[in-house]
């Protein structure tokens, strides 16, 4: 138990005949930030709800903080902090009351709840708003408050379900900074997000899931290297004929190509040579971008490009 915070073995979640999670295995180690990535409907929420002990495990085993996870497993719940996707703050209460009453739900006494609330509101830079109604807060402040609230019970595992969705860049940076600070304090974090730059920046380990199964796993850097290669050449405004010509020419190189809207993307190593050769063959238009491959490229390669609802 000591080094493993969450352990899932052949974990399955069924709703009637539908299998939302189809036998996944993963472990979350103490102190790491673990990313659970995947398109909508991939099975992320079901997995998280099982870890939070909110819904039954249909099959397989799931151990959280050394305890089997099942609804009513309060030994686990007491050690979790949860930032839900929809920020379910209490609109009838003030900022401070929201944190305090949540701390009381976790069993803190009133002094402790007050002290911890002050501390966490300051940590999330909300101390000046303590007596305001939640309704008066901006989206970014609401999100920060949800995170402060989730920390009230001093959790050993913090679950962040899309913590920065809908935030402006400034607010996202602030939240990222706070998440990194929590990591340094040794809090284990489970993160889901649709922003790949966020996952790349915050996660130590991650899994990409789709249709209830794990497609790939590893550290962000390792995944990029292994799945798409380190470099990317992005050529915008390429028609079908040009794209085919380039792709054909590049068949002999250790690269692979991909179409995205009207762009052609070339992934792999030895990109200098590839660009030289394309130039030499007069196949490269005037405008192209050379960049490092990112987790977004990995994600799109693994889960495809069709829209999900």
């Amino acid at each position: 138990m000591s080094d493993t915070v969450v352990m899932a073995k052949r974990l399955v979640k069924r709703f009637g005949a539908f299998e939302a999670v189809r036998g996944i295995d993963f472990t979350i180690a103490l102190g790491e930030c673990f990313g659970l990535l995947g398109p909508n409907g991939a099975g992320k929420s079901s997995t998280i709800r099982m870890i939070c002990c909110l819904t039954d495990v249909s099959q397989g085993t799931l151990t959280v903080l050394g305890w089997p996870a099942h609804p009513g497993q309060r030994a686990v719940k007491r050690q979790l902090g949860v930032v839900a996707q929809d920020d379910n703050l209490d609109p009838s209460l003030t900022v401070r009351e929201n944190t305090e009453i949540h701390g009381r739900f976790y069993g803190l006494d009133s002094c402790e709840a007050r002290r911890r609330s002050d501390e966490l509101l300051a940590f999330m830079q909300l101390e000046g708003r303590a007596n305001e109604q939640v309704r008066a807060l901006s989206g970014g402040m609401r999100r920060r408050l949800v995170i402060a609230r989730a920390l009230m019970g001093n959790p050993r595992l913090l679950i962040l379900d899309e913590p920065t969705t809908g935030l402006d860049p400034q607010a996202r940076l602030l939240v990222w900074g706070k998440i990194n600070e929590l990591k340094r304090q040794g809090v284990t974090i489970l993160l889901t997000t649709h922003y790949m730059d966020e996952a790349e920046r915050l996660c130590d380990q991650l899994v990409v899931v789709d249709h209830g199964e794990i497609l790939e796993r590893g550290s962000p850097g390792d995944l990029i290297h292994r799945v798409v290669g380190d470099d990317c050449l992005e050529v915008p405004g390429v028609d079908e004929r040009q794209a085919r010509a380039m792709a054909q020419f590049l068949d002999d190189y250790p690269v692979w190509t991909d179409r995205q809207a009207d762009s052609l993307l070339v992934y792999g190593g030895q990109m200098d040579e590839v660009i030289d050769q394309l130039h030499w063959k007069n196949l490269l238009p005037r405008t192209y971008y050379r960049r490092r491959a990112s987790l977004e490229d990995v994600f799109l390669k693994l889960t495809g490009r069709e829209l999900r609802d």
């Binding site: 009513g72 719940k77 839900a84 379910n88 703050l89 739900f105 976790y106 069993g107 019970g153």
Partner: peptide, 14 residues
């Protein structure tokens, strides 16, 4: 609407 019960049940209330 505001899903307060969900936040209560996530905090360790039954």
């Amino acid at each position: 609407e505001n899903r307060i019960y969900q936040s209560m049940i996530t905090a360790p209330l039954t």
